[in-house]
């Protein structure tokens, strides 16, 4: 999933300050899973902003609505019926959601309420970790299911560096060295020979070759 965190409230208030009729738009997918922008968080932020406005004696209209997926056109289009009542939308979607909404409703300012963080997993309740950078050419097979491009601080494909000690990364002693994990996993199924191979320079054009990437599947199109 895509993870995100809410921006500091002061930053949000500064961005919405010029507007008097604001729609808070939540997203019930990834950002709900990471407790940043689902229905619950959207209602909380709306209430908080209304409290703040009341304290200032300001008469601001703040409504909230949550859609299933802010990054999918079909889920955004129904907003057409209500969006004209507002002079700004504060989106609790990820960066993709914010931009998808902005693309469709070009007349109205769409303001991000979240800082989008990374592609990650829910490791535990309230604990999310990054484990994919979306490089476009998955190499997890070679590394026993541990991605060094994401989990090694130096993105080494032929690691580890000299800073791995007691299985921990030199950058943060709390963080396991990705190469230690790779070594352990490959040892466990007798596949250490995969580490003898020299992995050549990565083809980064799959990630950032010509601007934003797209996937087109004609069989999926109407």
């Amino acid at each position: 999933m895509i993870t995100a965190e809410q921006k500091p409230i002061d930053e949000i208030r500064e961005m919405i300050e010029p507007y008097e009729k604001i729609l808070l738009l939540g997203c019930d997918s990834c950002v709900a899973e990471c407790a940043a922008g689902g229905e619950k968080e959207t209602a909380m932020l709306a209430s908080t902003l209304r409290i703040a406005a009341k304290m200032e004696g300001r008469d601001v209209l703040i409504h909230e609505k949550t859609v299933d997926r802010q990054c999918v056109k079909d889920f955004i289009l129904p907003l057409d019926d209500i969006i004209n009542q507002y002079d700004a939308v504060l989106s609790l979607g990820c960066g993709a959601g914010v931009q998808a909404v902005a693309e469709i409703f070009s007349e109205i300012p769409i303001i991000p309420a979240l800082n989008t963080k990374f592609i990650g997993e829910t490791r535990d309740q309230g604990y999310w970790v990054e484990n994919c950078i979306g490089c476009g050419d998955c190499m997890l097979y070679y590394f026993g299911g541990v991605c060094p491009l994401t989990r090694c601080a130096k993105n080494l494909l032929n690691g580890p560096c000299g800073g791995s000690k007691d299985g921990k990364c030199e950058v943060d002693p709390e963080v396991p060295c990705a190469w230690q994990l790779i070594f352990e996993r490959l040892s466990a199924f007798n596949a250490l020979e995969r580490l003898e191979k020299i992995y050549p320079p990565k083809d980064w054009s799959e990630k950032q070759g010509r601007g934003p990437r797209k996937i087109i599947r004609e069989d999926q199109q109407l």
Partner: peptide
Amino acid sequence: VFDLDSIQ
């Protein structure tokens, strides 16, 4: 940056 690693 780490476009290459030392071995590369």
